[in-house]
Every structure is written in C-alpha cells, then in structure tokens.
C-alpha cells in the first residue's frame, strides 16, 4: 500500500494556550488521506472544521500531535513553503483571496512567489485557466466576475502551483446554487483527470454526499469516519451530532421508518428514485 498523502496523528489544537481564554479546538484527531481521494469534512459550528483545515497546509501548527504531508512534518520550518505549494486552499469569501485586478495576473501570483521563470509561469497560467474553463475571461477584473467564477479563479491560482491536494474551506457557502455546482464540478474534474486529492470542508450535506468518504467532527473530536452510503444510514447518530441528512437520505430514512424497505444508503436523488421505482414495480 502506497504511503498516504496526509497523515494526521493525535492532532490537538489549543487557541491562546496557557491563558484564561484558552480554547481546545481540536482534541486527539487522527486520520489519513490517500492520494487522489475525495474527502468531505462536516460538522456543526465550532466543531473545529476550519481549524483542522488550516493544519493541513501549516497555516496553523499543532499544539499536540503531528500532521504530515507526503511525509513532510508541518512543524518543521524548512518544509513550510513546500507544504503550502503541495496543499492549496480555497477560502470561503471569494472576494478576499484574489490579489490583483486582472484574472491571469492573479493566477500567476503563486508561481511568482516561488520564483518560477516568466516563460514557465505563462505556460502554467494558461493551463490552469483552461483546467477551470476560465481562459476566455483571463483579462477581466475579478470584481466583474460571479462568485462561482471568482472561486474558479482561486482554484486556478492554486493549480498554477502544481499541488497534490486542494482544501476547500467552506468554499461554496457564500455562492448561489449555480456557483456551488460550478465549483464542485471543477473540484471533481481535477480529481478525476489530474488525480488531485480533494478535501471539502462543508455545511452542505448534498455536497458531502458526493465524496468518497466523510469525516464528522463534533466538539473538536473525530466522531465518525465512513463512506456516505454507510454514514447516512446512521440517521439517529447524525441527529445526535446535530447534523442533517441530505434530502434523499431523509426521504429514504422516513420511508424506512414507515416500514417501506428502501435499499439502505441511497444518498442521491436519482439513486433513491430508482430504488423507489424498483419497489413500486415489484408490487
């Protein structure tokens, strides 16, 4: 078995340690993520989702435990920039992560920071914009783009760094449904075509349902770690963690409780419809 991309071992994080305001945001969290995996991290407000995300590219360092990216320890100073190059992050507010007033210049920002030669930056920028289908808008100022387009530019800016992993830190929360779809489709496409690992921190259960695996955080601890089909059959447990099921899973759960034997783990509308039709046809 190949070495995992991300290794999180007994990660604990305390904000303002040794003061009266000390807050334990993460407590003994351990998991690994393989290359090319699509993992969703869900949890209520204050569950430590964003704190966890910021440990994955050394924006925050562990108070206890260890985080490794491709074997590189985030706590070691010399690894800092290599780790940030390999793990990119798309943030929540599309307006507050674009640096320049021209789309393609913004995409070039990352490689410029690494000191990549100009001709090579050009090549990377063109490829990155093409990958998120933003080539036509390369000379636009960002403030004239839609939210979904801004987030795609942000993704392109990370792609130009040639990363192995992109973390979406609630990157779709401020977008309209069309924008959410745009961004998640781009993410999925990058995983499928370039094998880039995707970590999606999200409130949106329908978004999480499309991942390979879901991690549930509750009060700073890792409460559940399972594939969506399995996770969403545990409706009672998720409710106890104050989490909602995706719509399709809610319907399936309701039917099951009324004694209709819908196949367990149907988490997408289309799959649920099929299961219901199969039942109806059999009668």
């Amino acid at each position: 078995m190949p070495a995992p991309l991300l290794e999180v071992e007994n990660l604990t994080h305390v904000y303002h340690p040794q003061t009266a305001r000390a807050v334990r945001a993460l407590e003994d969290v351990s998991f690994t993520v393989a290359h090319g995996e699509f993992v969703a991290i869900i949890g209520g407000n204050g569950s430590g989702k964003s704190t966890l995300a910021r440990h994955l590219n050394a924006l925050l360092l562990p108070t206890g435990g260890r985080v490794r990216v491709d074997g590189l320890d985030t706590a070691v100073d010399e690894h800092l920039w290599e780790i940030r190059r390999r793990v990119g992050m798309v943030f929540q507010n599309p307006d507050n992560q674009l640096v320049t007033s021209i789309v393609e210049e913004d995409v070039a920002f990352g490689p410029e920071n690494l000191g990549v030669p100009p001709a090579e930056i050009r090549v990377r920028v063109d490829a990155a914009l093409a990958a998120v289908r933003m080539s036509a808008l390369r000379e636009r100022p960002p403030h004239l783009l839609s939210g979904g387009q801004k987030q795609r530019v942000a993704i392109a800016g990370i792609l130009a760094l040639r990363p192995s992993c992109i973390v979406f830190d609630e990157a779709t929360t401020m977008l309209d449904p069309a924008g959410q779809r745009e961004v998640m489709e781009s993410a999925r496409c990058l995983r499928d075509e370039s094998g880039i690992t995707i970590i999606a921190i999200t409130h949106n259960m329908d978004e999480a349902a499309t991942a390979d695996r879901i991690l549930v955080l509750h009060e700073g601890r890792l409460a559940l770690d399972a594939p969506p089909r399995q996770l969403f059959t545990e409706a009672a447990r998720l409710r106890a963690l104050r989490l909602d099921l995706p719509e399709a899973a809610q319907v399936a759960d309701g039917l099951r409780r009324r004694g209709v034997a819908v196949e367990a783990g149907r988490v997408e509308i289309a799959g649920l419809a099929e299961a219901i039709l199969a039942l109806a046809g059999r009668r």
Binding site: E104, A108, F109, P111, A154, L161
Partner: peptide, 20 residues
C-alpha cells in the same frame, strides 16, 4: 483574510520573486 490567502499561496515578500 487576504493575508492568510496570500500566505497559503506561498507569498513571503519580494525576495526571490519573479514576475510573469
């Protein structure tokens, strides 16, 4: 937030920076 996003994209000042 912008400062955080810039750091996440490996910004560390003008030293050793190139321009497209």
């Amino acid at each position: 937030e912008l400062a955080l996003a810039m750091e996440a994209r490996c910004y560390r000042g003008g030293e050793g920076r190139t321009r497209m």
